[in-house]
């Protein structure tokens, strides 16, 4: 019966119910929600695919290039892809509005292609993937990164060595 005190407190204080769904909902900044993919930063290292436990991320080789696919209905929002991504190409947003009618089930996906280009140095067919320069001093400028994108692995290695990079 000692619970009466709490009840009376509630009576006086009023409901503690949040306004959602009739009003805005609070979302913390670190919330691990829908995964977003930034094609421009992807190096195509496939680390995310290897750590994705439910197999929500998949890379395929297609005629146009290396295709990144990710299905939100398999994703368990663990964030390991984000953790192990060397260039932050894959990141979790705070978006949790994922509920959808079943007709839209298969459109809940990300589909991006790292396109094939011809190496700007030697002309060989290569993937236009972002570089991941480690130990480059001074750091790459935006133009340099853009240049690096269109180099084949061999030429890229050479270019990095010129800058004194370790990888």
């Amino acid at each position: 019966m000692n619970f009466i005190k709490n009840l009376m407190q509630n009576l006086v204080r009023g409901p503690s119910t949040v306004s959602y769904p009739f009003g805005p909902a609070w979302t913390p900044d670190k919330f691990r929600g829908r995964v977003a993919f930034k094609l421009a930063s992807c190096t195509g290292c496939r680390a995310c695919e290897q750590v994705c436990a439910p197999g929500a991320i998949r890379f395929d080789k297609t005629p146009e290039g290396l295709r990144f696919m990710m299905w939100h209905n398999s994703c368990v929002f663990c964030g390991l892809c984000e953790h192990y991504c060397p260039t932050d190409a894959i990141q979790q947003t705070t978006d949790w509005h994922l509920a959808h009618a079943v007709e839209d089930e298969f459109t809940m996906a990300i589909r991006e292609v790292i396109a094939y280009v011809n190496c700007s140095a030697c002309g060989a067919k290569t993937l236009s993937s972002a570089p991941n320069p480690v130990g480059v001093n001074p750091p790459f400028s935006a133009e340099e990164i853009e240049q690096q994108r269109n180099l084949c692995p061999g030429c890229r290695k050479k270019a990095l060595a010129e800058r004194g990079a370790t990888s």
Binding site: G55, R58, M69, W71, S74, E105, F106, T107, A109, R111
Partner: peptide, 17 residues
């Protein structure tokens, strides 16, 4: 299985997105 599901996803996203 993973294979069957991915085939569906690829078919659907290709036609809808």
């Amino acid at each position: 299985t993973t294979k069957g599901l991915w085939e569906k996803i690829m078919a659907q996203t290709g036609s809808k997105s």
